[in-house]
Design a protein around this nucleic acid. Sequence first.
DNA 1: TATATATTTCGATATTTTCCGATATATTGT
DNA 2: ACAATATATCGGAAAATATCGAAATATATA
Lengths: 132, 132
Amino acid sequence: MADDIRTLVEQLKAVSHPLRLRVLALLEPGELCVCQIAETLQVPQSSVSEALKELRRAGFLTERKEGRWVFVSVVKKKYATPLLKGLLAEVGSLDQVQQDRLLAQEVLAMAIPVVCSKVQKVAQATPVVARA
Amino acid sequence: MADDIRTLVEQLKAVSHPLRLRVLALLEPGELCVCQIAETLQVPQSSVSEALKELRRAGFLTERKEGRWVFVSVVKKKYATPLLKGLLAEVGSLDQVQQDRLLAQEVLAMAIPVVCSKVQKVAQATPVVARA
DNA sequence: TATATATTTCGATATTTTCCGATATATTGT
DNA sequence: ACAATATATCGGAAAATATCGAAATATATA
């Protein structure tokens, strides 16, 4: 419950960020593991991990650990704040979110280890600084 | 309409800030002029002005100019996004907001020029750096 | 135990935001 | 035109946030 204004501000900050908002929207239809999110959104896996940390801190997400992978999902409606419910209702109509969800379908069609290895390779394949 | 994810993020950013959120909540019951807000919340007038700029940019506020004062109010429900409506519904129950609204009552009981002059004086009366 | 793999945390830098006094602009009344 | 007053903008230093590769931490499997 956001009885405190600071709590509400923290929740708002958590979603005032393109990646974090996309992640939240991506999870609404159902749980995904970290590498599935990274692959779908084409961003470094560490960025996803940090985005998830913030969304968790805000109380929007829960986790389920299965072996080495971590499945993340939006908290049950019962525990969702009015803000969260409103947001989830609103983001679904955004173009970017719809595209992301389509890509997620394709990612879900692959086996998780395959997805994870793709994510690893992308990280190695695009060095920002040239090697000597 | 927030058809774009960036637009929605900008709107969220606009309210991810204690002062801006308090200002928005303070205006919900009805319009106030800038100095009334500054006096009620006990913050520098320039801070209020900048908070209002952001809230306006986000599309949450409209203005009405009357002589040298500027009265600000929340946009009509008709033009409010779902996010804004949800927020307004939620902030009313926050302690801080209720306190602010009580103070606003007292400020509204005074004539505007009196309130404005108080705001000016507070700025002068509390120098941060000692004079030589 | 050693190796591979999924995720988190760290480190370091770049960018953005916050904050508020001082100054500028706009409007009124004399 | 001038002084008074309400609000907006500027300047710029401090704090917060973003970003992402690299290193550290778990967990599984051989």
